[in-house]
Design a protein around this nucleic acid. Structure first.
Lengths: 158, 158
DNA sequence: AGTATATATTTGTATATGCAATATTATGGC
DNA sequence: GCCATAATATTGCATATACAAATATATACT
């Protein structure tokens, strides 16, 4: 193709500027949420595969651990830590109450719901999953690399 | 406390080794999945807030964009790209078919389901959400920083 | 052509997630 | 003590997600 002294704007722009890149190409190529959600699915599968024999979902593990470490803790405070909606917690915890991994603590402090603690059964379960969790953690680390792991672990305060 | 020449093993170990850290402390402090899931929730909220006026969920956006960019494309191939289970795609796409954003293309190639393409309505929707998506993308970038964004965008092949 | 195997999709079931609205209890002002 | 407001939890509704099993079609082998 010959050069006539006129360069269409979309081709004159460097990729960095991207004003003329279609929204489809932009989202497909750059959407941070899309990557985060895909990563979430990939990692969830890795941990779920390891935890399946114990009847514990990967998502439940992190909830159980917060209760075990911080409890007795109210739903609202779990939600603040994990960025989880209270309504989600009501439902997710119901399953874990049914399974006997956590229990409500009667304290007489606040009638608007009882704080939660881990049970002996829940603590036993956590003590059993150690090797499996570490295997998953190792695979996850290999998948995302050192930078990925450092980034995720550094997210804490945010 | 006096020093008697004996240091309990758990305190003699540096944090790096962690052999004696309880599983609770390990998962609470290091679980990559926990961070990834929390990040996912935080980012999803950012994009959902921006896209809500358009009746489009953040999760649907990335699906729509793949169909728009690559389509006609079969469910199985969408799944490979986005690491999504086929059964999830059947259900998620049903909503988008109902909304008229995508359509099935009759090609006579393979009777095991028809590939999907974006509709004019779907393309219009994508053209409308540009500024809102960019706003969310900007906030997400601010939240996770340059390193975080570079990491997520570099995940592609994996 | 006919059968066995492989591939693509859907259905049943269960959990995860969030918004809006509701219910319930706490708290502060009078 | 009573009422308005705030904080906590739950319920109704909708979407997201995956595993296992069932279904339907395609392909390969004989």
């Amino acid at each position: 193709m010959q050069y006539y002294g006129y360069v269409p704007r979309k081709y004159a722009l460097t990729n960095f500027m991207q004003q003329d890149k279609s929204i489809i190409d932009q989202v497909a190529g750059e959407c941070l949420l899309g990557r985060a959600r895909k990563l979430n699915r990939m990692l969830t599968r890795i941990y779920d595969d390891q935890l399946r024999p114990f009847g514990l979902k990967a998502s439940q593990l992190n909830l159980l651990v917060v209760v075990a470490k911080i409890g007795p803790i109210r739903r609202i405070d779990i939600g603040k830590r994990l960025h989880l909606d209270p309504s989600t917690l009501t439902r997710n915890l119901k399953i874990m109450l049914t399974n006997g991994w956590v229990e409500e603590i009667v304290s007489g402090e606040d009638g608007r719901g009882l704080p939660l603690s881990v049970t002996a059964k829940g603590r036993d379960l956590l003590n059993q999953i150690g090797p499996s969790w570490r295997k998953a953690q190792h695979r996850a680390q290999q998948l995302i690399g050192d930078e990925g792991a450092a980034f995720l672990l550094g997210l804490d305060g945010k």
